[in-house]
Amino acid sequence: MQLLVVICRRGVPVGVSQARSATHCTDMRGSTAGLADTLASGSRAHAALLECADALFASLVVAPAVVTYWKSTWTLMDLYVLPDDPVGSAAACAAFGLCCDLLFSVFQTQLSKYLRPERGRLTYYIVSRLCTGVAGVACVGAWRGVWNLLNECTGDSARTLLSTTAAATLSLAALRALRNICAAPFAVAVDSPQDYFDVPTMFRTVGTI
């Protein structure tokens, strides 16, 4: 699923080992699509070439594809989710998206535990991709819902836009979560079985529910 919320905190996260913390921060930093082992095993020139190709692939292929998916899904919601009620449509999308995000965050440990390739590759592949599909729609829905609620409820004057931008930026900076403003499509995740259902959270706590 790899819903990326780019938050890397210094020190040892609550309830997680130092090693896992380092792994998460490394995964969240760049766009390398699983090429770390390959890069480490070749010559420096070979590694530099692969790193350049990886960056180009992430920037010129993955990022536009993500934006295309978002734009298309957003437009479909405009057409089919309460099109005659802008506020209701935005509220419905926001509620659906944020609730799904909450559920995936709470149950990520259970999903990772029970949905594994060794328990059945076909079942794992189908269910994991269905979860990704739902999570993708929910992610766009959350964006669209909050975005359109702001449009409908606060207006679009320069003063309002500047104040809301400043408030959001300062809030994220105070929470040490400012990097989230440049998450997707600038963060690339790979569909690998390891940590497929991980949803990074603020304090990296381990689910016990």
Rank of each mutant, 00 (worst) to 15 (best):
G42C: 07
W147P: 00
D37M: 07
S59C: 08
D37W: 06
A168Q: 08
L4R: 08
F107R: 04
D195C: 02
S171Q: 04
V199D: 10
R144G: 09
M28G: 05
I181G: 00
L172R: 02
A47I: 03
L130K: 01
T165E: 12
S171W: 04
F96A: 07
F186E: 07
K113E: 14
A167V: 06
N180M: 15
D198P: 00
S128W: 04
L161T: 00
D156F: 00
C139T: 13
A90W: 04
V137G: 03
V206H: 09
G88N: 11
C25T: 02
Y69D: 06
P117K: 01
A90M: 05
H24K: 11
G97Y: 06
M28V: 05
S157K: 04
I181H: 04
L103Q: 07
V134G: 05
A94W: 12
Y125D: 15
V134L: 13
L150K: 05
D85F: 00
D198L: 14
A65F: 11
R121Q: 14
S163A: 15
S89L: 08
W143H: 10
A92K: 09
W74E: 15
V6I: 02
S192C: 00
L115C: 06
I209A: 13
D27A: 13
F104P: 03
N180I: 13
L4Y: 04
F57K: 00
R29T: 06
S192F: 00
T164A: 11
T109M: 06
L149E: 12
V61M: 09
L149K: 05
A65S: 14
R10F: 03
A95D: 04
H24S: 07
L130C: 14
A142D: 06
S89A: 15
V12A: 08
C93A: 12
A55D: 11
V87E: 10
L111G: 01
A166G: 00
T169C: 10
S112M: 07
Q18G: 09
V12R: 14
T32S: 14
P64R: 04
I181F: 13
V146C: 12
T205G: 02
A47T: 01
F107G: 05
M202Y: 15
C153Y: 11
P117G: 01
L115T: 01
T75A: 15
H46W: 03
T123D: 11
C153I: 00
A138W: 05
D191P: 14
A58Y: 06
A40C: 01
A135Q: 13
L3F: 10
R176N: 11
W74F: 15
L172M: 12
L79Y: 12
L178S: 10
A94R: 04
L162W: 10
A158V: 07
Y69A: 11
T132Q: 15
G15W: 01
A168M: 10
